[in-house]
Simulated scan of single mutants.
Amino acid sequence: MTTTIMTPTSAWPATSRLAGWAAIAVAVTIWAGFALSIRAIGVSALAPADVALIRFGLPVLILAPWLASRLPALRRVRPLDAALVTLGAGLPFFFTASWGGRLTSAAHVGALIAGTTPLSVALLAFLIDRTAVSRARGRALALILGGVALLVAGQGALDGAALGGAGLLLGASLMWGAYTLGLRRAGLDPIGCTLLLCLPSLAALGAMIATGMVETRIMTVSFTEILPFLVVQGLGVGVLASLAYAAAIARLGPATCAAVGSLAPALAALGAVPLLGESLTPMIFAGIAIVTLGVFRAARS
């Protein structure tokens, strides 16, 4: 049984679908920065809760003028769809991804979250909506996963801690797949989707900070140290990528957006070389090429 509310992808005119491709390109580029910034939390003076506060607080602050006009639509969102969005990319996702990133590398963050999200979306779409995967898309997903495996293997042997980190990142991928489906099912515009994600996350985080459940150091850190996270996590991931991804899903559908999102690991792996001093091997280059081919085939299937 199909529960999609928004207009089917095929109903969008060509110009609108072109806007969808532009939107997903923006989101993928920013996600590469997300993978790098998640890895950078471990070497920064900020606690993970501080970065989460930036991630969810800045979008609420920027989009607050539109809250009143979106409240009626937000109240109409079904509980399951709201849970898919808020749990899939909210605090549970953020803390799982940041914890996994501390134990692995930026390349692993990108590969094991964005790289495996197409499989997560396909699995959850089957479980929730009974949506089958075509043979052509199945072959494309197999290519993407093969490339992801090379990206992971190219980082060298995983010790016990890194294996645990990889498991956390795979869990974050499943959450992100839920978020991807939830965006389409919620029937909200991009601003509404972003508010649905950030408002509950910010409220829960505020309660956790007030009760001492999580550590915060943001009041003792200089603005210079906070600024990169404001730009990447708050403005980039929190506002621009959230709006762009919601717009892209409305026009292209969750399966296509998840497949194209698999390009983020390639960008993250390349960016980690000059920014974080991580190395690239021939195996990683091969993984990037295979992921790119799989994304191309998935987008055409």
Rank of each mutant, 00 (worst) to 15 (best):
G171M: 11
L293Q: 05
Y179N: 01
C193S: 15
I191L: 13
G167I: 02
G236Q: 09
R102P: 01
A64D: 07
A153N: 05
V152I: 10
R78K: 00
D189Q: 11
G57K: 09
A289I: 07
A172F: 07
P228M: 11
T96I: 09
P274K: 11
G206L: 15
G182W: 12
M283T: 15
T86S: 13
I54M: 14
I218A: 04
A210F: 11
G146N: 11
T2W: 05
T224N: 06
A248E: 08
I5H: 04
L119E: 03
T292F: 14
T104M: 09
A246R: 01
T194F: 14
P72D: 03
A241Y: 07
V237M: 13
G100M: 13
A136Q: 15
R135C: 10
A136R: 15
A97L: 11
A247S: 14
L91A: 04
F56G: 03
A35Q: 01
S16W: 09
G154V: 12
S105N: 05
A45K: 14
A298Y: 10
P254C: 12
V60D: 02
A258K: 02
A161W: 12
A64Y: 09
F126V: 00
L293V: 02
S301Q: 12
L181K: 05
A25P: 03
G187M: 08
I226S: 03
G271R: 09
I62R: 10
A64C: 10
I191W: 12
L263S: 01
R17D: 08
C257M: 04
T211V: 15
G187I: 08
L150F: 14
V148Q: 01
A204H: 07
L71N: 00
L174S: 10
A259V: 13
A122C: 08
A153G: 06
S44D: 02
V152Y: 03
R135G: 08
V221S: 12
A162F: 05
S10C: 08
A68H: 13
T96H: 07
D129L: 12
L36A: 01
L205W: 07
P282N: 06
V85D: 00
S262A: 15
F285E: 07
S262K: 13
L74F: 10
V28S: 14
V214E: 06
C257F: 11
A153W: 08
L280N: 11
L196T: 04
V239M: 13
P48S: 11
W176H: 07
A264V: 00
L168R: 12
L205S: 09
S301F: 14
T180D: 00
